[in-house]
């Protein structure tokens, strides 16, 4: 596969977006790809919008994805999804975790949180999927494993062996959390 695959991961600080992107990068490297990834730290990490760009293929130069070339939008939060629609390629996969985190403009009463997002997305993107990753994580035993459960859902889109994913998860998490997260991953991978 010569073409580079571009995944844009989006969410809100604290949702585990960066860890999810580390697991995906590690898995893709173990699967033999050249991988590049970009993230932001510091001030940008304190509860604001968080994005990471993950790119893999035979050879990758740029660590950032250009607007219009995102193959998969992997979004941890409904409203965050809407911010990045302009970055998608025409036949992009839009994978969204069905969770709401209200931005300040909504909690301050200046805006309403739109309830029409899933409808808009499914009308516009044939490859849109809404997933209850939080529910999957709770089923696995801990709501905090929502990111790994969601990676499980994402893993279905790649021809990468399950044991490679397992190794990547084990490499990125403290030993005592590995079993829980493997369970969350497995449950996520079964979702349709």
């Amino acid at each position: 596969m010569d073409k580079v695959t571009n995944i844009l991961m989006a969410g809100v600080g604290g949702q585990g977006v960066i860890l999810a992107s580390e697991i995906v990068s590690e898995a893709m490297m173990q699967a033999g790809y050249d991988v590049k990834k970009s993230e932001v730290h510091g001030m940008a990490q304190r509860g604001g919008s968080v994005t990471t760009h993950v790119r893999f293929g035979k050879k990758v130069y740029s660590p950032l994805i250009k607007d219009g070339e995102v193959d998969i939008l992997f979004s941890f939060e409904l409203l965050e999804t809407m911010r990045y629609l302009g970055t998608l390629s025409p036949d992009a996969i839009v994978l969204v975790n069905n969770q709401k985190i209200l931005p300040p403009s909504v909690t301050l009463g200046k805006d309403e949180y739109p309830d029409t997002i899933p409808g808009l997305l499914s009308a516009r993107y044939p490859r849109f999927e809404l997933v209850d990753a939080l529910g999957v994580a709770q089923q696995a035993g801990n709501a905090k494993a929502v990111n790994v459960a969601f990676v499980g859902v994402l893993s279905r889109f790649f021809d990468v062996a399950e044991d490679i994913w397992h190794k990547a998860i084990a490499a990125m998490l403290p030993p005592k959390l590995v079993d829980l997260n493997l369970k969350a991953f497995a449950l996520g991978r079964e979702q349709h």
Binding site: G48, G68, M82, R83, L85, G86, I101, P103
Partner: peptide, 17 residues
Amino acid sequence: GKPLKQAKAGGQRPSLC
């Protein structure tokens, strides 16, 4: 080239934990 779509919206801001 095709002009790029700009889809920037305000919203989440950094905040103390």
